[in-house]
Computed example of a mutant assay.
Amino acid sequence: MKVEVCAYSLESCLNAQQAGADRVELCGGLGEGGTTPSAGLIAAVRENIQIDLYVMIRPRGGDFVYDESEMDVMRRDIDIAKSLGADGLVLGVSLPDGKVDVARTRELVQYAQPLGVTFHRAFDLTPDPFSALESVIETGCERILTSGQKPTAPQGAALLTELVKQANGRIEIMAGGGVSSASAAQLAAAGVNALHLTGKAFRPGRQTYFPAEISMAGEIPDERSVLFSDPERVAAVVRLVS
């Protein structure tokens, strides 16, 4: 069974390789659940690891419904990931009702060729997982990353088993979310094709001075909202200082 590590730094990618992982999913935007990493990070990781490197293609946090300008950004990011030696990509596009946007996802999958594509956990926000499975197969993706539509994959193990049965080898099912040494055996027994984990741990940073009342994170929206710059708010400040 393949093991994939979700990584946000070169350090984590090197650790994943040293630990025996088969593949890395490289992301930026930890606080947003994973967005497209920088070109510099992709290049550094590619130069330093030999295991498979899959790059997240997600232009922003929030939901997975994208307009044409965001699709253009995703195509450009695919070009960059290809040029920097990625082995595959991770992406997904949804419709406003949560169903898989087959047309737009297929467009990106075809644009990504010859790289393989994983459909990410937008799958877990679909209203009907069995219909969504067929939709993702239709897009040409090679695997689905899912927690079985539960907060963690161990909680979603029953659905994961059903998805594996329905897939019947037509697409890989990779369990992600709350995967650890404590749950790996249970998920393997569920029949999934791969496990996806961060293996997260924390160590003190190098900076020792931090004012208690200041945070760089600011307000972090959840999946139900999209952060944007409000032109009226910007214009109001411009008027005041002009």
Rank of each mutant, 00 (worst) to 15 (best):
R224L: 11
G31T: 11
R203P: 01
I137C: 04
G20D: 07
S83A: 14
Y209G: 08
Q207D: 15
P231A: 14
V164P: 02
V226H: 15
V24E: 04
R23N: 05
V238K: 14
A188N: 15
E4R: 02
L53R: 02
I78K: 02
R106P: 02
A153D: 03
D22T: 14
E47Y: 08
G98F: 10
E32I: 08
S9K: 08
H196Q: 00
M56N: 03
L30I: 14
S242F: 15
L187G: 03
E219R: 15
V117T: 06
E68D: 12
A175M: 05
A194I: 08
S215E: 12
D97G: 06
S180K: 12
A19D: 02
F130C: 09
R233V: 13
V102N: 03
G176Q: 00
C27P: 01
S131W: 07
L240N: 13
D63L: 09
V90A: 04
P96Q: 04
G176S: 02
G92K: 05
G218K: 06
V55P: 00
V24R: 03
R233A: 12
E4Q: 07
N15P: 01
P211W: 11
G85Y: 07
V65G: 01
R206C: 10
V238D: 15
A194V: 10
V102F: 05
Q50S: 13
A153G: 07
D101S: 07
G177I: 12
S135P: 00
I173K: 00
N193T: 10
A184M: 11
C27D: 04
L95Y: 02
N193W: 06
P127D: 06
H196P: 00
C6W: 02
A194Y: 06
S180P: 04
L10D: 12
A190R: 02
E134L: 10
C27Q: 08
L108Q: 03
F202L: 15
G218E: 05
T126S: 10
G85A: 10
V55Y: 00
L125C: 09
R143C: 02
I137V: 11
G191C: 07
Y66M: 08
R206M: 09
C6E: 01
G176F: 00
T139M: 03
R170L: 03
E4S: 04
M71K: 09
M174K: 01
K200L: 09
G156C: 04
Q113N: 10
N15H: 12
C13M: 15
A212G: 14
A44R: 08
A7K: 01
A188E: 11
L108N: 00
L125H: 10
D101A: 07
Q186T: 08
R203Y: 12
L227V: 15
